[in-house]
């Protein structure tokens, strides 16, 4: 009796769920670092967030260094 074993490697489809999740992360991340002017914290802090600009100040140096418009 003979016995042979083989391994087949196939390439599988790209899951839409994963692509959608990565797309959301991409948009959110670019917005936080490049463009937020208090918008995200305003959900919790209201109008005061536009004065405090916590995320803007936190990402300020990267915003300039990565080429996003600032000031």
């Amino acid at each position: 009796m003979s016995q042979s074993k083989g391994i087949t490697i196939t390439e599988s489809k790209i899951p839409i769920f994963a692509i959608a999740l990565l797309a959301v992360i991409f948009v959110l991340g670019v917005f936080v670092v490049g463009f937020d002017q208090g918008h995200i914290f305003s959900i919790v802090l209201g109008e005061q967030a536009y004065e405090d600009l916590y995320i803007h100040e936190l990402t300020h140096d990267m915003r300039h260094a990565a080429g996003f418009p600032c000031h």
């Binding site: 992360i25 991409f26 991340g29 670019v30 670092v33 490049g34 936190l58 990402t59 260094a65 990565a66």
Partner: peptide, 14 residues
């Protein structure tokens, strides 16, 4: 300090 954190966020995004 935020520079490095912002780098991690932007890097994850890009």
């Amino acid at each position: 300090g935020g520079q490095v954190l912002a780098g991690a966020i932007l890097g994850t995004s890009i």
